[in-house]
Amino acid sequence: MIGAEFWQRLRTPPDTLMLEIGAGGELLVAKLRALLSLVLLGLPLLNILTGEYSPAEGTAGLLGALLAIAFSQLWLWLARPPRRLRWLPWLTTAYDITLTTLVLGLLLRDSPAAGLNSMVVWAFYLFAILMTALRNDGRLTLFAGGLAILQYGTLAALVFALVDSPERLTSIDYGTARLSTVLQRELLLAIATAITATVVFRMQRLVELSGNDGLTGLPNRTLLVHRFPSLTDGARTSGCSLSLCLLDLDGFHRVNDEAGRAAGDRALRHVVQILQQGLEPHDWLVRLAGEEFVLVMPVPAGRAWERMDALRRELAASPFRPASDAAPIRLTFSAGIACWPHDGPDLSQLLRRADLRLRQAKLEGRNRVVARER
């Protein structure tokens, strides 16, 4: 059911590609937050220029704006590359919601009606919820919406419980604070959360389709390009090597020619199954294109060669059978290995070096792994 899939996906932690995109989204949110903070500072100044300055509202707005500007610079600094702090979106989202509540609380000191009915300040709840869509994490959207509903509801409950005079709930500028108005705004927050969550759900589906291979279920080139910088960052931090193995199936076109396209698709899934059985926890297998794959391993080139050669022998010893009554087809691959950072500082240079060694393996008779030029 679509409804079950929707809620299940929202509650599920995002995959690697979504986290990478979300890191860029957090930086974009930080820049928007810094801009909105400057706009927020302009509101009390605008009231002064137009002669509509209210001491209580002006003080609350000014303090809130200054606080927002100071923290926005901190969040912007933390969001800049190469930092990828997974807790940062949660902290900044809680900050966005709570800062709005604090400004409303400052307005309450002079006028309870202003604290509950100020649409300009209350709208920042909506901005905080909508900005979670840029992080591509449905859990964050639900968290933002739930926190906004809880904090605004708590604020309203305290006002109605502590204000002893109905006259204090009325303001010339903000009207009368009513329970029905509060409930309507709580409903608007829930609607904004649902709409934003739907946007996140659609984004996740689109990214999933663009970042994964439909036939084998493996990550594709798009995901490799997005994730590789974080893999090198992790290798740099831990001080380990990173080997990129480019492998291509030998003479695979004959499977399609002899057994048909459908059998060729099953043969590719057979190859992936054999390769996956030999993977270790931190290995990463990617289908690059056609019958070409990339295997990234956090090991030196020598160890990568040993493991790739073992996978080569395992595949050669596990022939593919197109049908129950058909003769088995022996599948092999050739591979070239490049090691970061010795063979190149980025993905394109490593792929180029691995491709040269793959070509050498093909020229030397195929069904072999080459880790260095001869």
Rank of each mutant, 00 (worst) to 15 (best):
Met1Gly: 11
Ile2Trp: 14
Gly3Met: 09
Phe6Arg: 07
Arg11Trp: 03
Glu20Cys: 07
Ala23Asn: 07
Gly24Val: 03
Glu26Cys: 10
Val29Ala: 06
Ala30Leu: 04
Leu35His: 04
Leu38Tyr: 09
Val39Ala: 11
Leu46Val: 01
Ile48Ser: 15
Ser54Trp: 06
Ala56His: 01
Gly58Ile: 13
Thr59Ile: 14
Thr59Asn: 07
Ala60Val: 03
Gly61Asp: 12
Leu63Asn: 08
Ala65Val: 02
Leu67Tyr: 09
Leu74Ala: 11
Leu76Asn: 00
Arg86Pro: 01
Trp87Tyr: 12
Leu99Arg: 04
Thr100Asn: 09
Val103Asn: 01
Gly105Glu: 02
Leu108Asn: 04
Pro112Gly: 03
Leu116Phe: 06
Val121Arg: 02
Ile129Thr: 02
Leu134Arg: 06
Leu134Pro: 02
Asp137His: 04
Leu142Cys: 01
Gly145Lys: 00
Gly146Pro: 03
Ala148Trp: 00
Ala148Asp: 00
Leu155Pro: 00
Ala156Gly: 09
Leu162Trp: 08
Pro166Ala: 07
Gln184Thr: 06
Ile191Gly: 12
Ala194Met: 10
Ala197Phe: 00
Ala197Val: 00
Val207Cys: 04
Leu209Ala: 15
Gly211Met: 11
Gly211Tyr: 05
Asn212Leu: 03
Asp213Gly: 09
Gly214Thr: 10
Leu215Cys: 13
Leu218Thr: 13
Leu224Ala: 14
Arg227Pro: 00
Arg227Lys: 14
Phe228Asp: 10
Leu231Met: 15
Ser243Thr: 11
Leu249Trp: 04
Asp250Arg: 01
Gly251Tyr: 03
Ala262Glu: 13
Arg266Val: 02
Arg269Trp: 01
His270Met: 05
Gln273Glu: 15
Ile274Asn: 15
Leu275Tyr: 11
Gly278Pro: 08
Glu280Arg: 15
Glu280Lys: 14
His282Met: 14
Asp283His: 14
Val286Asp: 09
Val286Pro: 07
Val294Ile: 14
Pro300Ser: 10
Gly302Pro: 07
Arg303Pro: 05
Glu306Gly: 02
Leu311Asp: 08
Pro322Phe: 05
Ser324Lys: 15
Ala326Asn: 05
Pro328Met: 06
Ile329Leu: 14
Thr332Ile: 01
Phe333Ile: 05
Phe333His: 13
Ser334Cys: 03
Trp340Pro: 01
His342Trp: 11
Asp346Ala: 13
Ser348Arg: 10
Ala354Asn: 04
Arg359Thr: 08
Gly365Val: 10
Arg368Pro: 05
Ala371Leu: 11
Glu373Ala: 13
Arg374Lys: 10
